[in-house]
């Protein structure tokens, strides 16, 4: 099934902390995510797989909007029959978000969540000079992105929220080049674009999404 143009995008939330084996040589008892000051647990293997698939697949995210349909297709290939039920459960727990860029819900999300960068910036790739690589030294890059996404990866995590980052990056674009295209200097447009271009960074583990510290602190038990 192909994704319709207006189908919302699906974003995973949290920093992956892996499986926990309670007993030696036994399967994992659960999988751990760190989100804000919480560490929600995924007790079902299918939930762990679907949460992982919500990051995107490297060979698809550059050409396929990463929607519920896209995740369902990938999940079916992994033998997961009830992807929608699992995704609904993750949505209910706030471990994924389903958002259409440009909507009020996306703006609210951007005001309450932040991005955190991982890995190192490796710069332009010798065999692919129009793209910048993100990864670790001595191994192939895990993400290859254009200059706008690269700048987002470099700096956006210093702002308290995604909305602040979009505003800051728009200001940077305006300051760097007074003749910058209006699209690069408009915070709303920047936010829409960064949401649409986020999955190549998410699936390479170059970034993850988190609650803003203000939201995390307010929710701290």
């Amino acid at each position: 099934m192909s994704a319709s143009a207006d189908e919302p995008l699906v974003f995973p939330l949290g920093h992956q902390m892996g499986p926990f084996h309670q007993h030696r040589d036994a399967p994992p008892s659960y999988w751990v995510i760190r989100l804000g000051w919480d560490s929600p647990l995924l007790h079902e293997p299918d939930a762990a797989v679907v949460w992982s698939l919500a990051h995107g697949l490297a060979d698809r995210v550059h050409t396929t909007p990463w929607t519920r349909s896209a995740i369902r297709s990938a999940a079916e290939e992994s033998g997961i029959a009830d992807c929608d039920g699992v995704l609904d459960g993750l949505l209910e727990r706030g471990l994924v978000a389903e958002l259409s860029p440009g909507t009020a819900a996306a703006a609210e999300f951007a005001g309450t969540h932040r991005v955190q960068s991982l890995l190192l910036g490796l710069g332009a790739l010798p065999d692919h000079p129009e793209a910048d690589g993100i990864g670790l030294l001595g191994m192939p890059p895990l993400a290859q992105v254009g200059p706008r996404s690269y700048q987002f990866w470099q700096w956006a995590h210093l702002w308290p929220t995604l909305a602040d980052a979009a505003g800051g990056l728009a200001e940077m674009a305006a300051a760097e080049s007074p003749a910058a295209p209006p699209a690069d200097a408009d915070a709303t447009t920047v936010l829409d674009r960064l949401l649409r271009e986020l999955h190549p960074l998410l699936c390479g583990h170059a970034v993850y999404l988190d609650r803003s510290l203000a939201v995390a602190d307010a929710a701290r038990g």
Binding site: M17, G18, F20, D25, V32, R34, H205
Partner: peptide, 16 residues
């Protein structure tokens, strides 16, 4: 962190 947590080992649960 610059990377992910990969959890503990099935063979040695004290090792993360």
């Amino acid at each position: 962190p610059l990377v992910l947590g990969l959890g503990n080992s099935a063979h040695a649960p004290d090792a993360y």
